[in-house]
Design a protein around this nucleic acid. Structure first.
Lengths: 211, 211
DNA sequence: GTCTATACTTCGATAGAC
DNA sequence: GTCTATCGAAGTATAGAC
């Protein structure tokens, strides 16, 4: 559902992703989605039936895609510290590939899931669930300090989502000379975050290493 | 601009805060703001002139309020580690007092500042600026490890914003039995985050303490 | 499957009486 | 300052020809 997309529904979903990310559910315009997808608006209703259905289909796909990658990491049998490193890297890569994902995630959290049906909510929930599972295992094995897995989830992924989703406003703030972002590339940000999380989550016995 | 509010404009701003937080700029309805504020819609236009002006006025106030608290912390002469602890605590308290703040912040980041004028952008920028200043000072004094101050800002505050702003959706996920939030109160979350940040940001020489 | 034209609704904003 | 009534624009969705 990413960039190429030859079939109508896929092109529509790709266009919808950009529109919903930039404007939010309420701000998104069906006409604009149709135009961006280069399909007639009637086609869009022919395939999906409503704006809401497009939105839910899109979110279900993207949450399921992200969760699948995290679950694959969880099922590895590597040390938890490595898995956490991978979670950060993998989500960063996923968001780089699906640039609309951070914005939509930020908006949906703020929205309280108002536009989501139970199935889509379930897909959304599988993301923190997968991360929490990894952290929980680490805590059980005493390689991660005693922390609530959901607290760890937010500590790990919220910075990533807000940093990557905040790219447009940072551009704006930089243009107005209101903030100094010298040398903070996305790549460096990811490495800084990995480092911070290694330090923040390591069990006391496992501390000292900073790689 | 918080809860009590006797004068019309203040009541309008308080109502607008709730409406914008719950629905976003595009989703917010002027009629609903007027109703919530128990003023006639015409009064609302009499005082503010447009939906956009209400939004900008609100955001300028709230960002300035948050930044003021952070600047006060920055100007203290306590150890940086303590200041960082205080930043987390203070922002958490500020968001508890202004429950609409996290949602609006999440939305505005996703929106890329589309509805903001330069002055409001400046108010927004003063929040990360204050935090970055504290971190930068710590790095200079070698009590904080070498990290980009803006990276540290996101690592510290994004979890707080997403966790607190995500309260509605967590309620939803909990009701559907899709996530386990046993024992993760906001208070515990704040303490976990403070702990994580102490571990993540301490300079190598200053490590070992976990209080 | 595809398109044009349009029905129906909602919403931001204002006119104008008091 | 306050209210009622309403305008005009914009938006989702659909009917119906091809």
């Amino acid at each position: 559902m990413a960039r190429p997309a030859k079939v109508s529904p896929d092109r529509i979903l790709a266009a919808a992703a950009a529109e919903f990310a930039a404007r939010g559910y309420a701000g998104a315009r069906v006409d604009r989605i149709a135009r961006r997808a280069r399909v007639n608006k009637a086609m869009l209703y022919y395939h999906f039936g409503s704006k809401q259905t497009i939105y839910r289909t899109l979110l279900r796909q993207v949450f399921a895609g992200a969760a699948a990658k995290l679950i694959a990491i969880a099922e590895t049998d590597r040390p938890t510290a490595d898995k956490i490193d991978q979670v950060i890297e993998t989500i960063a890569a996923f968001m780089a590939e699906h640039a609309f994902f951070p914005s939509i995630m930020l908006r949906e959290i703020a929205e309280g899931g108002a536009h989501l049906d139970p199935e889509t909510l379930k897909a959304l929930a599988s993301v923190p669930a997968a991360v929490a599972r990894i952290v929980h295992e680490g805590v059980r094995r005493k390689s991660v300090r005693a922390i609530h897995p959901v607290a760890a989830y937010f500590t790990m992924l919220a910075p990533l989502v807000m940093y990557l989703g905040g790219a447009p406003i940072r551009t704006e703030l930089t243009a107005q000379h209101l903030i100094d972002l010298t040398a903070l590339t996305p790549d460096r940000f990811v490495r800084e975050l990995q480092q911070s999380m290694r330090l923040a989550l390591a069990a006391p016995s496992a501390r000292r290493s900073s790689r």
